[in-house]
Each structure stands twice: as structure tokens, then as C-alpha cells.
Amino acid sequence: NRRVIAMPSVRKYAREKGVDIRLVQGTGKNGRVLKEDIDAWLAG
């Protein structure tokens, strides 16, 4: 149960899109989840 590193704005964006942020692979520094990662996850 790893802790997800993401800015609050990215967490909010994921919530609005209905994405469980824990399932998204972060590509930022130290595995940080970026807004682009959410978009990529939604695109498949």
C-alpha cells in the first residue's frame, strides 16, 4: 500500500475524472503522478 506522490490539484483532477490515482503510474520526479499521467491513463 504505497503512498502516492501527487500535487493536490492533480488529485482533484483525478477525482473529477473518476480515476483511482493509486492505479496510475507516475512519470514525474520520484514517481510523482502528473496531470499528463492521468490523461494517459484515461486514453488507455
Results as ranks from 00 to 15, higher is better:
residue 31 G to F: 10
residue 34 L to V: 10
residue 21 I to F: 04
residue 26 G to P: 11
residue 32 R to V: 05
residue 29 K to I: 09
residue 30 N to G: 14
residue 6 A to K: 02
residue 34 L to S: 09
residue 12 K to C: 04
residue 32 R to T: 06
residue 41 W to Q: 06
residue 30 N to I: 08
residue 22 R to M: 11
residue 36 E to M: 14
residue 40 A to K: 14
residue 26 G to R: 03
residue 33 V to L: 06
residue 6 A to M: 02
residue 43 A to G: 11
residue 26 G to Y: 03
residue 32 R to M: 11
residue 23 L to K: 14
residue 5 I to M: 05
residue 3 R to Q: 14
residue 22 R to H: 11
residue 38 I to M: 02
residue 33 V to M: 04
residue 26 G to D: 02
residue 3 R to A: 13
residue 5 I to Q: 07
residue 5 I to Y: 06
residue 13 Y to E: 03
residue 6 A to S: 04
residue 18 G to N: 12
residue 19 V to C: 05
residue 19 V to R: 00
residue 6 A to R: 02
residue 39 D to C: 05
residue 37 D to E: 01
residue 3 R to C: 07
residue 13 Y to R: 03
residue 31 G to I: 02
residue 36 E to H: 14
residue 36 E to A: 15
residue 1 N to G: 12
residue 41 W to S: 06
residue 40 A to N: 12
residue 32 R to E: 10
residue 24 V to I: 12
residue 9 S to P: 08
residue 7 M to R: 15
residue 24 V to Q: 02
residue 25 Q to I: 13
residue 38 I to F: 00
residue 11 R to I: 06
residue 5 I to W: 05
residue 34 L to T: 10
residue 13 Y to K: 02
residue 25 Q to V: 14
residue 33 V to Q: 02
residue 19 V to G: 01
residue 7 M to V: 08
residue 26 G to F: 03
residue 7 M to D: 15
residue 7 M to E: 11
residue 24 V to S: 01
residue 40 A to T: 14
residue 24 V to D: 00
residue 11 R to K: 08
residue 1 N to Q: 09
residue 5 I to V: 12
residue 38 I to Q: 00
residue 14 A to L: 01
residue 22 R to L: 11
residue 40 A to W: 12
residue 35 K to G: 05
residue 27 T to R: 10
residue 12 K to R: 12
residue 42 L to N: 06
residue 33 V to S: 01
residue 3 R to S: 08
residue 36 E to D: 13
residue 25 Q to S: 13
residue 2 R to T: 15
residue 41 W to R: 05
residue 38 I to V: 12
residue 41 W to L: 07
residue 21 I to W: 06
residue 28 G to I: 03
residue 3 R to N: 15
residue 10 V to A: 04
residue 42 L to I: 14
residue 33 V to E: 00
residue 19 V to D: 00
residue 43 A to N: 12
residue 10 V to I: 06
residue 25 Q to Y: 15
residue 23 L to Y: 13
residue 18 G to C: 08
residue 33 V to W: 01
residue 14 A to Y: 01
residue 44 G to N: 14
residue 14 A to V: 01
residue 8 P to E: 06
residue 2 R to E: 15
residue 15 R to A: 09
residue 42 L to R: 09
residue 35 K to T: 08
residue 27 T to E: 03
residue 24 V to T: 05
residue 4 V to F: 04
residue 11 R to T: 03
residue 4 V to I: 08
residue 11 R to V: 05
residue 3 R to K: 15
residue 3 R to D: 15
residue 37 D to V: 00
residue 12 K to Y: 07
residue 19 V to K: 00
residue 37 D to H: 02
residue 44 G to Y: 13
residue 32 R to P: 01
residue 14 A to E: 00
residue 16 E to P: 01
residue 24 V to L: 09
residue 36 E to I: 14
residue 44 G to A: 13
residue 14 A to M: 01
residue 37 D to P: 00
residue 14 A to D: 00
residue 19 V to A: 06
residue 38 I to N: 00
residue 28 G to Y: 02
residue 17 K to T: 11
residue 3 R to F: 07
residue 34 L to K: 11
residue 30 N to R: 14
residue 22 R to V: 10
residue 36 E to F: 13
residue 25 Q to L: 14
residue 16 E to L: 13
residue 22 R to P: 03
residue 39 D to R: 08
residue 15 R to F: 09
residue 32 R to D: 04
residue 12 K to H: 07
residue 12 K to T: 06
residue 13 Y to V: 03
residue 38 I to S: 00
residue 11 R to D: 02
residue 14 A to R: 00
residue 7 M to G: 15
residue 18 G to I: 05
residue 36 E to W: 13
residue 16 E to S: 13
residue 1 N to D: 15
residue 37 D to T: 01
residue 31 G to K: 08
residue 30 N to S: 14
residue 44 G to C: 07
residue 28 G to R: 03
residue 32 R to G: 06
residue 26 G to E: 02
residue 42 L to T: 08
residue 23 L to Q: 14
residue 35 K to Q: 11
residue 39 D to Q: 09
residue 4 V to Q: 05
residue 43 A to D: 11
residue 17 K to C: 04
residue 11 R to H: 06
residue 23 L to C: 05
residue 15 R to L: 10
residue 29 K to C: 04
residue 19 V to L: 07
residue 27 T to Y: 04
residue 31 G to A: 10
residue 14 A to H: 00
residue 8 P to W: 07
residue 7 M to L: 14
residue 16 E to D: 11
residue 2 R to Y: 04
residue 17 K to W: 10
residue 10 V to F: 01
residue 28 G to D: 04
residue 20 D to P: 09
residue 17 K to S: 11
residue 21 I to L: 09
residue 31 G to S: 08
residue 43 A to R: 14
residue 10 V to C: 07
residue 12 K to P: 01
residue 18 G to S: 11
residue 14 A to K: 00
residue 38 I to D: 00
residue 35 K to P: 05
residue 18 G to H: 12
residue 43 A to L: 12
residue 35 K to F: 06
residue 32 R to Q: 08
residue 28 G to A: 07
residue 44 G to H: 13
residue 8 P to I: 06
residue 27 T to H: 10
residue 30 N to A: 12
residue 24 V to K: 01
residue 11 R to F: 06
residue 31 G to Q: 10
residue 43 A to M: 13
residue 31 G to N: 10
residue 10 V to E: 06
residue 33 V to G: 00
residue 8 P to R: 15
residue 12 K to Q: 06
residue 23 L to W: 10
residue 31 G to L: 08
residue 33 V to D: 00
residue 15 R to H: 09
residue 29 K to L: 10
residue 28 G to M: 03
residue 25 Q to R: 13
residue 44 G to K: 13
residue 21 I to Q: 01
residue 29 K to S: 10
residue 29 K to Y: 10
residue 27 T to N: 09
residue 22 R to W: 14
residue 30 N to L: 14
residue 1 N to Y: 04
residue 18 G to F: 10
residue 27 T to Q: 07
residue 39 D to V: 09
residue 34 L to G: 08
residue 35 K to L: 08
residue 16 E to I: 11
residue 21 I to T: 03
residue 12 K to A: 08
residue 42 L to E: 08
residue 40 A to I: 12
residue 41 W to H: 11
residue 44 G to P: 10
residue 43 A to H: 13
residue 21 I to R: 01
residue 26 G to I: 02
residue 39 D to I: 11
residue 43 A to V: 12
residue 10 V to S: 03
residue 41 W to Y: 14
residue 42 L to W: 08
residue 3 R to M: 06
residue 27 T to D: 02
residue 22 R to I: 09
residue 29 K to M: 10
residue 20 D to E: 09
residue 16 E to R: 15
residue 1 N to F: 04
residue 10 V to G: 01
residue 13 Y to L: 05
residue 14 A to C: 05
residue 16 E to V: 12
residue 39 D to N: 12
residue 12 K to N: 07
residue 4 V to Y: 04
residue 10 V to L: 03
residue 13 Y to N: 01
residue 18 G to M: 13
residue 5 I to R: 07
residue 23 L to S: 11
residue 2 R to I: 15
residue 15 R to D: 05
residue 36 E to T: 14
residue 20 D to Y: 06
residue 12 K to D: 04
